[in-house]
Amino acid sequence: MHELSIAMGIVKIAEDEVIKANVEKVTKIELEIGVLAGVELDSLNFVWKSAVKDSVLEHAEKEIEIVKGIGKCVDCDTEFEMLHIYDTCPKCKSNFKGILRGKELRVKALEVI
């Protein structure tokens, strides 16, 4: 359940930013999570409530943008959608690929008052 650590990391970022911006609290948080990032959204949602309790995020709305996985084959340059980290190139079946998108795990923006 590393999603709890992830959630605590999000809380820390929000708290730091709230202090920096000299505001009171967060009303909305926008996250960007790639399908290959290794985070189960169900687990993240499950731990969210306890993670944000008594923090600046306690009453914040959470919006998650899911980023599709995109890989590029090192052998034949084909770009393809990746649902799993072990997906092979659909054209030449090579295992060698670079992951272009889908590993994102980011706090995009905070709406604060």
Binding site: G9, T27, R106, V107, A109, V112, I113
Partner: peptide, 17 residues
């Protein structure tokens, strides 16, 4: 009046680690 403001963060969640 509450002043809503948007902070663009673009920060990696695992950055601290």
């Amino acid at each position: 009046e509450h002043q809503h403001k948007v902070l663009e963060i673009e920060q990696d969640i695992l950055q601290h680690n």
